[in-house]
């Protein structure tokens, strides 16, 4: 919260800081992609519905951007650090969603990233995966500017065309 003498303003809605490891094993933070827009989605590789649907949708949108995709770094941040090691994320993304770079970390790092993006994710028992678990999570896609600052976001209820149009406007 910004405080000037006795005046305080509301906090920046999406601070967007993180310190994580990418799926190639490199340490990265919000400054690591300077000069590029970042399209950020949180999820977990065991996700059966939300992540496949959104990553596929975002991949189609990125394809539709043509050459402009070169100015964007699509990032997929795990909310399940226990299972999503860099190796697991790399295998998952390179096969299915090659535009994306996976980011993960330890629980504390993930919790900080979630807080910085106002992401909800909570581990729960999964009736369809006895012995396993699910991590229901926010399905918002964030667009950060070339300096890593929040520009806008796209909720899941927007159509593919609306996201493409709004994304194009921002780039």
């Amino acid at each position: 919260m910004e405080v000037i003498k006795n005046y305080s303003k509301p906090p920046t809605p999406v601070p967007g800081m993180f310190t994580l490891t990418d799926h190639n094993g490199n340490k990265v933070d919000q400054n690591s992609y300077a000069g590029f827009y970042r399209l950020v989605f949180f999820g977990f590789t065991h996700c059966r519905v939300i992540c496949p649907r959104n990553l596929a949708r975002l991949s189609r949108i990125l394809d539709a951007l043509g050459d402009r995709i070169d100015g964007i770094r699509p990032l997929y941040i795990s909310v399940d650090p226990e299972r999503d090691t860099p190796e697991v994320m790399k295998k998952f993304l390179e096969i299915n969603y090659p535009h994306f770079t996976g980011l993960t970390g330890n629980q504390e790092q993930i919790d900080k990233a979630k807080k910085a993006f106002r992401v909800f994710a909570e581990r729960k028992a999964d009736p369809e995966d006895p012995g396993g678990y699910a991590v229901p999570h926010t399905a918002i896609t964030y667009l950060m500017d070339r300096n890593g600052r929040y520009l806008t976001h796209f909720a899941e209820n927007l159509s593919e065309e609306e996201v493409l149009e709004r994304l194009t406007e921002q780039l």
Binding site: Y7, S8, K9, P10, P11, P13, V14, K115, R118, V119, F120, T138, I140
Partner: peptide, 17 residues
């Protein structure tokens, strides 16, 4: 210090998280 937009944004993100 708020206005209708910053207050709305604040409540929206509080809902999201």
């Amino acid at each position: 210090v708020y206005d209708e937009k910053s207050l709305n944004d604040h409540l929206y993100w509080s809902m999201v998280e």
